[in-house]
Structure formats: C-alpha cells, structure tokens
C-alpha cells in the first residue's frame, strides 16, 4: 500500500489547471496545422491562423487561451494499492482554487438560481474510478460553457440503431452551427443509463485527438461521423469550410434491453486538457 499525501495532489492539480489553460496541447495544435493545410476557404484559414497566433501569445504571456477557463472537470483513477492521506475530493477542490487564483484564470462557477459566483472556481466536477496498481491518475479538462450548452442527451429506441445515432449526432452539430466555437471535438457516449451515457461522452474527450479507438469497428464509426459532420461545411467559427470537427471520440458500453442511450458532448476547439500520474 502506497500513501499519497494531499499537498502533493493539491500542487499537481493547481499546476495542471494553469498549464492546460495557457499552453495549447500539442495534439490540438497539430490538428489546427493539419486543418490549415487542407482548408481552401480563406476565412477558415484566417480563423485557424488567429488560433495558432493566440496559442503562441498565450504561451508567451501566460494569459489563458480563452477567457472562459471553464468548469474544472476531473476524471480520477485511484489505484487499488493507494491510500490517500486526507480527503481526495477536498484536495482536488483546493488544487483547483489554487490553480485558478495563481494562474489568473476566470472563475466561472455560480449558483444556478441567484447566479452569484462561488468566487474560486469550485466546486470542481470530479468523476472517480478505481484501477489496479499503486498510482493515482488525474485527468483535467477546462470545460467551457459555450460548447457545453450545445451538448444533448437522448434515449433512442433500439430500432433506431446506428442510423438513428448518426442522424442525431450530425443534426446536433448542424443545429449548434457557429455557437460552440467550431472546429469542435465531439464526445459521444452510447449505452449505459441516462446519466452514464453523458459521463462516458465526456470521458471520451480526455482521449488524445491523434489516437485511434482500440476497437476497429468503433474507430470506423468515429471516422464515418467525422466525415459526415465535416460535409456540413460549417467550418471554423461557422464561416464555412471543410473543418467543422477536429475529431469524433466515442465510448460504447452495454445498455438496458429497452434502451439506446445517446449523449453528445460538444467541446470547443480550445481543448484544454492535462493529465498527471502520482
């Protein structure tokens, strides 16, 4: 049994919040560059050029890439042979507080009714899971509100099958249009229950953009959706072009005999993510 003390977790979380919000991850930058080379539309190229310049400037000045530093979302994998000295949830919240304060990040959490800001970026959204081993793995993403607002979950009838899923997802992206800051990344959750579909849709977004799903059938479906969505022609910031999504990531799990749960989590182009293993 390995012991991890909470100060170590707090510092690691704070550092991740600051790094993710100020340094565009290399997989996202590579997708921008790839899109820039493929796009023929001048307005699309101009948007991508600005996004690359923005990333360079954020890196240099340590200003956040986007003023919406999101709600702090964490996926945490606790090894079976790890003991946390102190409270893990509180440590992650404390790390979030520290990171958002020290990094001059915008605190965007508020009361849903009074709309009063909680003032420190918390509470973080924390999803816990358990894995073999003696490590603690923490994934962080800064989830902006504009793209989150364009996300939807639904319960399809099993008879609707893949065609129904495809129609729903492509339609969702079409209806969202320019609102979620395209080119987006689409996280899809299929299966489980109502809330589980949404959770695995979000979890799909922690994958690197350049990875391939280990199941070739799912990888092919991701590809099929990516191609269909890009034919919509919405383009960067909705100004037209062949890059409406940078990537489609899908998680598939068993569901109830009666159901076909589907969640579509839309992520803006500013896909700020980090991970750490303690």
């Amino acid at each position: 049994m390995r012991t991890i003390k909470t100060p170590e977790i707090i510092d690691a979380v704070a550092a991740m919040c600051i790094k993710a919000n100020t340094e565009l991850p290399d997989d996202v930058r590579a997708k921008f560059e790839e899109a820039m080379a493929k796009e023929t539309s001048e307005s699309a190229k101009e948007v991508l050029r600005q996004l690359l310049e923005n990333a360079d400037l954020a890196m240099e000045t340590k200003l956040p890439l986007c003023q919406d530093c999101g709600l702090a979302v964490f996926f945490v994998e606790v090894g079976d042979d790890v003991r946390i000295e102190g409270n893990l949830r509180e440590a992650i919240n404390e790390g979030t507080r520290k990171g958002y304060a020290d990094g001059f990040l915008r605190k965007s959490a508020c009361d849903p009714f009074t709309r009063v800001n909680t003032g420190d970026g918390t509470p973080a959204i924390i999803h816990l899971d358990f894995t073999p081993g003696d490590k603690l793995k923490i994934f962080y993403m800064a989830k902006g509100g504009g793209s989150e607002n364009m996300s939807r979950a639904t319960m399809l009838a099993p008879a609707q099958g893949w065609e129904g899923i495809k129609e729903y997802v492509v339609n969702r992206v079409a209806e969202a249009g320019p609102n979620p800051c395209p080119p987006t990344i689409i996280g899809i959750g299929i299966g489980g229950t109502f809330e589980h579909a949404a959770k695995i849709a979000k979890k799909s977004l922690i994958r690197r953009l350049d990875d391939t799903h280990p199941d070739p059938e799912i990888a092919a479906k991701e590809q099929e959706l990516e191609e269909a969505i890009n034919k919509l022609g919405i383009g960067p910031m909705g100004l037209g072009g062949s890059t409406t999504v940078l990537s489609v990531k899908m998680s598939v799990e068993p569901c109830h005999l009666a159901s076909l749960p589907l969640a579509v989590n839309v992520q803006c182009h500013s896909q700020r993510h980090e991970e750490v293993e303690l």
Binding site: Q50, N54, L63, N117, G146
Partner: peptide, 28 residues
C-alpha cells in the same frame, strides 16, 4: 463576430479597461 477562443490575442487590442457598474458580478 470576434474570433471565439482567441481571447489572449484579442486582449492585445484592448488598451484600457475599468469597471463602471455591477462590480459584484466579478467577471460579468
């Protein structure tokens, strides 16, 4: 339209800023 997600870049064109109302709203 201004380019969404280019907040660092756009801030370069803002030379001064002062809160004139509703300070309690923080970022808003």
């Amino acid at each position: 339209g201004a380019t969404g997600g280019a907040g660092a870049l756009l801030s370069n064109s803002i030379v001064d800023s002062k809160v004139i109302a509703f300070d309690d709203l923080g970022p808003e």
